[in-house]
Simulated assay, not measured.
Amino acid sequence: MGKGGWGIGRLGLWMQLRRMAGQDSPPAPEIPQGPGPLLLVHVAADARLAFAQVQRRLMRARPDLRILDPGDPGPQAANALMRADPAALLLLGSDLPPVLISAASRHEVPVILAEARFAPDDAGWSLHARRRRELLRQARAILVTDPASQAIALRMGAGRKRVAMTGPVAEIRDPLPCSEAERSIMAGLLRGRHAWLAASVPPDEEDAVLDAHLAALAQSHRALLFLAPRDPDRIDPLAARIESGGLVVARRSLDEDPTDDVHVMLTDGPTEMGLWYRLAPVTYLGGTLSGDDAAARHPFEPAALGSAIVHGPRTERFATEWQQLGGAGAARQVGSPDELATAIAELSQPDLIATLASNAWTVSTGGADVTMRICAPVLDAIGKPRP
């Protein structure tokens, strides 16, 4: 970026700030009381989840920390906030609030940008893009969510030492519980059988799941399907239908066990999911083929419990998490019922299952690591607690 580019961006930012100075704005919010350091946080709409997790991690490290989200204050309010001597300004998301950043820069308050996503237009030549580049120049650390944003940040003129890719903050979920005694008994009954789970299956995907199990049986005649219908009222009609096709069914609702002759174990719908994820090395997450995701399960549920994941193309409900899993080779996407059948048959191979499951576990537990990487420069700016 040449000097002329910076000059236009600086001039454009100055004009924008001057325009805003003439507008009415609310007074500065009340500063939280206490002896600990003050951290100003600006949270964009797309970073609410990140803020919740970052806040928990920061407060765990510094219980005396005072955190204030002032919103989008006017110039006078921003200057008043800076006179309260904040230790740092943390920006979460892709917004670059000009008033806050400029006030922090003038008062030598470190600016840290995290959970940032940039678009190709940000590296363009419009006045808006040049203003954003000028604002980005004032950030001490720039933590982006993806390789494309990292490349754009560099094209915007951010120095390589200031830009790091952390990945997005994903929800940190505790593994679903189950009865260990029940799991041990069930695992003993399976005795090495290839088992897979179809979780929260809507009615219009039942045919695809059953056809996939027939493909699995052709590959391994002892294969067992744990079928968790989205609607528990479907259990009895499904049992009758499956048995009419020549397969043997056990029903959890009747306390029946998956003995050697059972081909399909019908669970109690959405209950005991922690048990089925632990027993099934492979999980298909229902609703992702048809888009009927009214009761779709979170993909980190099976991932956190070591079950390899198969899914369809309809992943809108947990788009960020699916993006993470896909980028890490941690899930297998299928586009049709035929592809589901092929995938389930192929995933009877232990080495394929192990690779997917390991990658998925790494992604599902990685939210904690991303959160820690965001907190690190903030804690460095705040400094160590006083003795």
Rank of each mutant, 00 (worst) to 15 (best):
G5V: 06
I8F: 07
M20H: 02
G22Q: 06
G22V: 07
G22H: 06
I31Q: 13
I31P: 02
I31K: 05
G34S: 08
P35G: 14
P37S: 01
L39N: 06
L40D: 05
H42A: 03
V43Q: 04
A52N: 10
A52Q: 11
A52G: 04
V54C: 10
V54G: 09
V54Q: 12
P63M: 11
D64V: 01
P70S: 09
P73A: 11
P75K: 08
A78H: 07
A80S: 07
L81Q: 04
D85A: 14
P97W: 04
I101M: 11
S105C: 08
S105I: 00
R106S: 09
H107E: 03
V109C: 11
F118K: 15
G124V: 10
H128A: 14
R130F: 02
R137G: 01
I142D: 03
I142P: 03
L143K: 06
Q150N: 09
A151Q: 10
I152E: 05
M156W: 03
M156D: 09
A164W: 03
M165F: 01
A170N: 13
P175Q: 03
C178I: 02
A181W: 04
E182H: 12
I185S: 13
A187K: 13
L189A: 10
P203N: 08
D207V: 00
A212Y: 07
A215C: 13
A223G: 13
A223P: 11
A228P: 13
R230S: 12
D231F: 02
D233R: 15
D233F: 06
D233G: 14
D233H: 10
P237Y: 11
L238T: 14
A239M: 02
A239W: 01
R241T: 07
A250G: 07
P258K: 05
T259A: 15
T267M: 02
G269M: 04
M273D: 09
L275V: 05
Y277T: 04
Y277S: 01
L279M: 06
L279Q: 05
V282I: 08
L285C: 00
G287Q: 00
S290T: 00
P299D: 05
F300A: 03
F300G: 01
P302Q: 13
S307H: 02
G312L: 07
P313I: 01
R314Y: 00
R317W: 05
F318S: 05
A319Q: 06
E321M: 08
Q323I: 03
G327M: 09
G329A: 02
G329Q: 05
A331P: 10
Q333Y: 01
G335I: 01
S336Q: 09
D338H: 03
L340P: 13
T342Y: 12
E346W: 09
L356T: 15
S358T: 15
S358A: 15
S364C: 14
S364N: 15
T371Q: 10
M372A: 15
M372F: 03
M372W: 10
R373Y: 12
A376N: 09
L379C: 04
